[in-house]
Design a protein around this nucleic acid. Structure first.
Lengths: 211, 211
DNA sequence: ACCTGAACACCGTTCAAGT
DNA sequence: ACCTGAACACCGTTCAAGT
């Protein structure tokens, strides 16, 4: 069972084992006792090296966020470049599904988004936005992307939806629009929806006319 | 300590007490043993009436969602009416902060959003959207609103943000735009940001031109 | 049909004790 | 400085037994 039992126990070894556990079996599977068993030490040793469970989760989040890698925009127009940043960010978050849950639980979304924020500021400037309007643009995109990923993950974990969207739309309640009823009965193409929504948002906010 | 100890124990009484506990002290405070103590019964009685903790939470979510009340759009243009629906929905979700967390955890966002979905379909039609485009519009708004509320709640629970957004933007890293730096250093006006983002999204998606 | 206490298999955390 | 086992105060759930 023990994986990294050789040598003296270090803070790094504890975090490594904890990260592996979370990656493989989710945050709920991270128990102090289970982790200790995996490390081949007494539970209390973990307390000495990294502190209690809360401190451990904090350190874990910090570690993973730091290792996310930077985001490079691509495309010719500001709209394309912002969209590429949004997609890259979504991809990063989706590649670390448990991390998103962890960060969400701990209220650290802000922290996670900081690198992308810098990139977005540059794009806002390139598009001619300044001051408060640029700030609003950056935050709107930030909320949009993170929010979308949260909802998306939520749906993936969802059990068989209780009333079941399909049945609910099979009846004639769609105002005589069978194509709409069919579309709503189909599962959502979240990738496509994401692109559509981000593009719509960005297009509006980058448009020259005032509010 | 006991609150509703009189009379025979019923499923309804258990759910009522559980709902009160969650409202007052959050989902984590809902323990089978604590609930039993509040009801003045043995823990095992709860199992007889509503089943285990998971079943209890499911019933609780179902109950609260059912009691949310319908949403009536207001305003003259489709854009205004959709915005009013979005605001009403955000308000509902914010009025039941623990519920949002519960629904999110259980992956029932879909279920919660169904009534609003019907209203949005009508507005999409009024704006001239049909079929797949109408469906896409409805879902984009849905993801936007729910996502925003999730991020918003996340930030509210956030501890003092570690690096602290303000300090990070006080340096000159904002590309020579002091007004932007100041804006990003200020706390977010989430209400305003919500309206801006929803309006931008809706405006783009309701615009006549194709993609 | 309804309710009970005892027991099982878990938790996180603290603390005094070892080396 | 580092690691240990024992103990404390919790959990959710099961089960046999009561009325």
């Amino acid at each position: 069972m023990a994986s990294g039992a050789r040598g003296a126990l270090t803070r790094e070894a504890v975090l490594e084992a904890a990260a592996g556990l979370v990656r493989r079996r989710g945050p709920d599977a991270l128990t102090m006792r289970g982790l200790a068993a995996e490390l081949g030490t007494a539970v209390t040793s973990i307390y000495w090296h990294v502190g209690g469970r809360e401190a451990l989760l904090d350190a874990l989040v910090e570690r993973t966020v730091a290792g996310l890698g930077e985001i490079r925009p691509s495309g010719r127009t500001p709209e394309q470049r912002v969209l590429s940043v949004a997609r890259a960010l979504r991809r990063q978050l989706r590649d670390h599904p448990h991390l998103v849950a962890l960060v969400h639980e701990r209220g650290l979304t802000e922290r996670m988004f900081l690198p992308a924020q810098r990139v977005l500021v540059r794009e806002a400037h390139a598009a001619g936005l300044r001051g408060a309007r640029a700030a609003e643009f950056v935050r709107a995109v930030q909320f949009q992307v993170v929010g979308h990923v949260l909802v998306e993950r939520n749906r993936e974990r969802a059990p068989a939806q209780h009333p079941g969207e399909p049945e609910l739309w099979r009846a004639g309640s769609a105002g005589d629009d069978p194509a709409l009823a069919r579309a709503l009965a189909r599962p959502v193409d979240t990738e496509r929806l994401f692109v559509t929504a981000v593009r719509a948002l960005v297009r509006s906010l980058l448009a020259p006319h005032g509010v």
